[in-house]
Design a binder for these strands. Structure first.
Lengths: 224, 224
DNA sequence: CCTGTGGCGTAACGGTGTTTAGTGCCAAAA
DNA sequence: TTTTGGCACTAAACACCGTTACGCCACAGG
């Protein structure tokens, strides 16, 4: 938590840089990934495209900046869950927040989880990767809390949070790709039910026991 | 199973159409999404770009054809799991096949799970959507088998297969986006462990019971 | 033999990201 | 007050992109 403000401190941008960013965000949210271009962005600002290169090194850097904004917005949504009184409440509120964000701001969600190649970069800048790691850390903390509260099974919170996160992200992705032919409210119900299934386990008790002995032995021994 | 061959019957293409497709696949697999262009494809074939439009209506249709090929390859990989003797073996072999395919052919995997906008289409053609549905059906069948064999808890196989699929897909996506800073063998281990965790359940028994009553009641009553 | 069609090339249109060179303005220094 | 310097901008250009219109030519069918 103490590292959080430092992560999101931004170098003071010139006024023009901020103006451009605001227009870029507006343009991206309206037109999406394919409809975003430097020339359009310039037009929007009453300026020719090359002028933008005085303030941003290239399109990739503008998109990276939008990506930072996406992360910040996501964070501010998700961090509201910390106001809840118990570990369980915080966990569930965080899950709701995740779902709300992914459904309410699909373009920001898509940008957050797009690879470097998609925005024309080899690798993401370090600070963006750090933002991803911070989100992961948030989930790790929620999971650890719930383990301590006797809600989640004891185990490595890092691994368990990945299981939960992958499940949530996978559902959202499949939904956004249009794989499910259902509406939003149906998807919300599906999301909740699938989450509950993940919590309770999919295998029968007999088989779960067998599996646990095979795959989760070392871990269990570690936490005994 | 009987519907399967019909789904993959293709209209006889002219020789040139097939030649173009072969080169297109080669180009896409080598250069990826961003590096694929009609002009490059023409150059590869010793032909100018407009010539391609005698055989394909546009870039989107070429990419759609590659997408069909991706689905076919995926299917032929995954269907090998059906040779295994028991439901459990088929289920696990299918899971291995999924992981192998996603790691061995990341570009094909990415194409299979890319949205229509990414290839420049409004909506996918019906036959491609049918291929996605066929894959889903494959998982549903594996899940139903395992339910009958007493390996998976009784329930709606459609819902349960979605939970499993979303989890697998989410893990693969997060890995491909470079979120995990681990190598392939470590990821394989993570994938297996996370799968086992999903099977056994993440929540403690007490809380799982509480959850089941809240979310899975109707379903359980239905299957009682 | 003629005709028509199919496959291709050329040129072009409008779009993209980006670089280079030049222009004008404004503020600070002399 | 004049000069200078730097900054934000434009215009033009380069190298791409998807796509269309048009003209050419070779080959098959009548």
């Amino acid at each position: 938590m103490t590292i959080f403000p430092a992560l999101f401190t931004v170098f003071t941008m010139s006024d023009q840089r901020e103006t451009i960013l605001a227009a870029a965000i507006e343009l991206y949210l309206r037109e999406g990934f394919e409809g975003f271009s430097m020339r359009k962005l310039g037009r929007e600002l009453g300026v020719t495209a090359p002028a933008l290169y005085r303030h941003y090194e290239g399109k990739e850097h503008v998109l990276a900046e939008i990506m930072r904004e996406a992360h910040r917005t996501f964070m501010s949504t998700i961090y509201r869950a910390l106001e809840a009184p118990t570990a369980l409440d915080r966990f569930f509120r965080a899950g709701e927040g995740y779902l709300d964000f992914s459904l309410g701001h699909p373009r920001w969600y898509a940008l957050m989880f797009s690879g470097p190649a998609q925005i024309g970069m080899e690798k993401f800048p370090e600070d963006i990767e750090a933002m991803g790691a911070a989100i992961h850390q948030f989930w790790i903390d929620r999971v650890r809390e719930c383990m301590d509260a006797g809600i989640l099974k004891e185990g490595d919170p890092v691994q368990t949070s990945l299981t939960l996160w992958a499940h949530a992200h996978g559902l959202v992705e499949l939904y956004h790709r249009g794989h499910f032919q259902i509406d939003v409210t149906q998807f919300r119900a599906l999301f909740e039910a699938s989450g509950a299934r993940l919590m309770s386990g999919v295998a029968t008790e007999a088989f779960a026991e067998e599996l646990a002995q095979k795959y989760l032995n070392a871990e269990a021994a570690l936490n005994a």
